[in-house]
Amino acid sequence: MSIVTIERKVLEKNDELALQNREVFQRHGLFVVNIVSSPGSGKTSILEQTLEHLKNKLHIAVIEGDVQTDFDAQRVAKFNVPVVQIVTNGGCHLDAKLVQDALASINLDGIKLLIIENVGNLVCPANYDLGENVKVVVASTTEGDDKPLKYPTMFRNASALLINKIDLLPYINCNLTELKTNALKINPKLKVFETSCTTKQGIAEWCTWLEKQV
């Protein structure tokens, strides 16, 4: 037997492409957010509210990631912002190459904020750096208060947590204090927002925080 020592990151190729993306973002003075969550937590609704709130203050572009359909891109296009839909055709996450290809279709001149909505999945996107500045995780109250413990990586790598569908709390069995405590044990630096896209609770606070990051 002979041993070849190599000491490589298994995902080094993705990391290299993410670095290239990061250079492109820096060159354009772009702040990039990667929004992650399980399917149905309300990522696209949060995005719609964010665009409504910030589109007159900031030039924003959007990359949408889904396994199938361009439904989300259609929803975003109504806000008259540049949007590209990535359809992964079964792929469970976006990777740096998919984002790099999507960037070719967006004129980044003048854009200050790029929001990437990842594929709904709390596991796989955690491993793939896209070149973003921050990850934001959305967890809705209907998913229960134990999500941070079940999917810790996503919460540990995120800068902000949006606890969405907060208006449904009276009707469901979700302990908000428990949810926050669990998330903060995983990542004490998480900035936590309680949001509802129906009542608009917390949207202004979240948008103010986001605007400050840009």
């Binding site: 037997m1 002979s2 041993i3 070849v4 020592t5 190599i6 000491e7 490589r8 990151k9 298994v10 995902l11 491993n127 990586t153």
Partner: peptide
């Protein structure tokens, strides 16, 4: 705890 590294490749002789 977050590692995903390839460290060695063993060649049979």
């Amino acid at each position: 705890g977050s590692e995903l590294d390839i460290t060695e490749i063993e060649i049979a002789e």
